[in-house]
């Protein structure tokens, strides 16, 4: 599904040039549940942004379903993010001005879905994550776990092929974090590809595939189910 070839990302900080990613090559297949591990500053988030086409590589190729997306125009990249990707962030990133249901409707408005359909689908998604009683609540009125479940519902609103989750349990107590992981795992069982950034080795073990980064380079790729390096 996704293939990265020799991805390099260099940040130019005036006199200093920082290599955030160095020759990263990896492949994520449809239906994978991949975890990206690594210490702070290892390039996890940069890799995540490049995977989500929120950032572009300084060098290298990014193929999505065999299409090179690195040179696509902005409008086309936005369409791919909207139609094929779903993002889940550590700090939820809900819009405080919008109610729970409106936050979930937001990506669908960019997909040109009619208002009535948007609302019906958003309500259904919120019911699926157990928030049918919180539809019109603003994010500030929701707990952290509830906010993250709204964020998951939002990520699912356009039936994405790939969920990119950047430390989705990082701001949650362990029991709420567990709920979120279970939701992600159930999505994976339904065929949604999941790529999750995490610090937590326990969580990474639950993924089928782990990519370990250090200083911008992939130091290890392992298949956790089979317990061997790939």
């Amino acid at each position: 599904m996704i293939k990265l070839e020799n991805i390099n990302k260099q940040y130019d900080l005036g006199t200093v040039k920082v290599n955030a990613l160095k020759n990263v090559s990896l492949e994520i297949k449809r239906g994978d549940y991949a975890a990206i591990m690594g210490p702070s500053g290892s390039g996890k988030s940069t890799l995540m942004h490049i995977l989500g086409i929120l950032d572009s590589a300084s060098r290298g190729k990014y193929y999505l379903e065999d299409y090179d997306v690195t040179s696509l125009p902005d409008r086309e990249q936005a369409r791919i993010r909207n139609q094929h990707f779903g993002f889940i962030f550590q700090s939820f990133n809900l819009f405080p001005e919008l109610s729970a249901v409106e936050n979930v409707m937001l990506p669908m408005s960019y997909a040109g879905v009619a208002a009535k359909t948007r609302r019906e689908k958003a309500v259904k998604l919120l019911e699926d994550v157990g928030l049918s009683h919180r539809l019109t609540h603003l994010p500030t009125m929701l707990s952290g776990g509830e906010q993250q479940r709204v964020a998951i519902a939002r990520a699912l609103s356009n039936d994405p092929d790939l969920i990119l989750a950047d430390e989705p349990t990082g701001n949650l107590p362990s029991d709420k974090g567990e709920e979120i992981l279970e939701i992600l795992e159930s999505l994976n069982r339904r065929g949604v590809t999941i790529v999750m950034v995490t610090h937590n080795p326990e969580q990474s073990k639950r993924a089928g595939y782990v990519i370990e980064l250090r200083d911008g380079a992939v130091i290890k790729e392992s298949d956790t189910l089979e317990g061997k390096d790939v």
Partner: peptide, 16 residues
């Protein structure tokens, strides 16, 4: 700024 980033993540193009 962050809101702009989120909007782009959920599908907004720069022109939007």
């Amino acid at each position: 700024k962050k809101g702009v980033g989120i909007l782009m993540a959920v599908g907004a193009a720069k022109k939007d």
